[in-house]
Nucleic acid binder design. Structure first.
Lengths: 290, 290
DNA sequence: CAAAAGCTGTACCAAAAATTTCAGGTAAGC
DNA sequence: GCTTACCTGAAATTTTTGGTACAGCTTTTG
């Protein structure tokens, strides 16, 4: 067997690593098995063949072929290996950041991820706690209708926010950026309303116009933007900036998503008393579908 | 369901702890079993009854009586408990910090961010480079139409991907999840088409149905999902799993966004020759609007 | 010191798990 | 367009494993 005879002196030839390397040469169902295993490594491999197979969506024989292909004499032998590896790793306190693992993964993806992570850290540092709290408070006030909006790219984030928050509380909607689509709705917007706008560079005039109109009618505007600040900042009550520069021809919205998810999490917690029954009700309705 | 548990997660007393407490009341061979288990906790319990018995120097039935005494219905049940305990303990070094989150505001944001960052790292590690590259290649083939789709929350991510990629290349669109909205379009879907589906837990039947239909007609399905793998994985050619667990009542999509942005960046680079003029043309058209 | 109660292990059985066989299906190659 | 090679899962088979009954031994107790 190859891996036995010619082992380079590098310590842990983690099975996970080997699987990643050999991923190319796997058949489709072997790939399923590999993904399943890697995504819950190594616990997915610790129960029975049948369980493993069903979770990976393949048949038991395919799982057997998979472990055979990895060089094991059978499933029990494979399991023993996983257990020993896990035990060894767990007992050595320093084994946490296995450096051999860090270097792998899609190189492009890994570099991109590091950059995004840097953005997230920078974003968190530059957000004023009071500002964040104030926005949570604002979105938790159920008497105030909340409207999300965004530009051609950030619109998706606005929808994301809306799809979550609308389950937690009522009076939540999404407004399309194009003026033709919101002009008439502006009649309804007043002092009570809250507009949450997403806008990053190549700032979009129509979104700005929407916010300015709403602000003029007394609405409270919350802006999620980049560090250069969309012009909407002039009419916004609260501004939450996120770092967006990534090694790409496009900007990264991960920081905006982070803020969005954190806001949703905080509001959900804040309103839990009323949110819980709502969420359960939504769940029930969904299950009645057929 | 996750959202059912309002109760702060009081750490369930580890089995090891319980054994220590009840140690006095054990019979001699039970004590030997207990010591054996505690000294190699929890790995000693992870192999067969016979192995355990021999290591502890007792007989198999004694081991069985021991686990029964601990309140388990049988040895497999006991093993399952150990695995789950271990997994929970190992996978959430961050989640442990969450019970103390009575704190408000920025601390919450910072904690949330750290958790998300952990997800991103884990996501990168579990993506096979070959899989990522293969998807980039697939999306870079301009002869193959690309269709994005997603569920009620992930639909927003699909739109996000679509709004970027449609600028880079042609034949890119977004398909609504509801069957009524895509049934007729399926006529057009064939071997050349590529479906990119976003689907995380509380997997949506309509999205699954869409992908299955498309796959049946020969389309290539790419799936972005969570580590538990949406049922779509069964018909997907490529699967890119992202970690999604966050200290929130909701799952975090940051890992999916990361993959999405990395894919878009890679495809843009790959197609730069043709993408650049396209992007410039789009820019020009946008500026002509007023 | 004797009888009862309780542990413990051997031998056996039943259940479940892993593995092999085989046939249908799919994609590559001629 | 046909053949070949390979992948895949259903079902049958074998092996392993967990579980149980029972009898001997040890400890406790009156």
């Amino acid at each position: 067997m190859k891996s036995d005879s010619n082992v380079p002196p590098i310590d842990p030839p983690s099975l996970a690593e080997r699987i990643r390397l050999e991923m190319d040469s796997f058949t489709p169902s072997e790939k399923r098995a590999a993904h399943m295993l890697l995504s819950h490594y190594p616990f997915a491999g610790l129960d029975t063949v049948a369980e493993f197979a069903s979770r990976a969506g393949i048949s038991a024989p395919s799982v057997l072929r998979f472990v055979t292909r990895l060089g094991f004499g059978g499933f029990p032998e494979f399991q023993r290996h996983l257990r020993e590896e896990l035990e060894a790793q767990l007992l050595s306190p320093l084994a946490k950041a296995s450096p051999s693992d860090r270097s792998h993964g899609a190189p492009a993806l890994a570099a991109f991820a590091e950059s995004v992570i840097g953005n997230l850290r920078a974003t968190v540092e530059n957000i004023a706690p009071a500002e964040f709290d104030a926005v949570v408070e604002l979105l938790s006030d159920q008497r105030r209708p909340v409207h999300f909006t965004g530009g051609r790219f950030t619109g998706a984030l606005a929808r994301y926010a809306e799809s979550h928050l609308r389950i937690v509380r009522s009076h939540v909607d999404y407004i399309e950026g194009q003026p033709a689509l919101w002009r008439d709705r502006m009649i309804e917007i007043g002092r009570k309303d809250v507009i949450v706008a997403f806008d990053i560079r190549r700032y979009q005039e129509d979104v700005t116009a929407l916010c300015e109109t709403a602000a003029k009618q007394g609405a409270t505007v919350v802006l999620l933007t980049d560090p250069w600040l969309s012009p909407i900042a002039r009419v916004a009550r609260h501004v939450l900036p996120a770092h967006i520069v990534a090694p790409s021809n496009w900007d990264s919205s991960a920081g905006l998503l982070l803020i969005t998810e954190a806001l949703v999490a905080a509001v959900t917690k804040r309103l839990w008393e009323t949110a819980k029954p709502r969420m359960e009700a939504v769940e029930r309705l969904r299950n009645e579908k057929p």
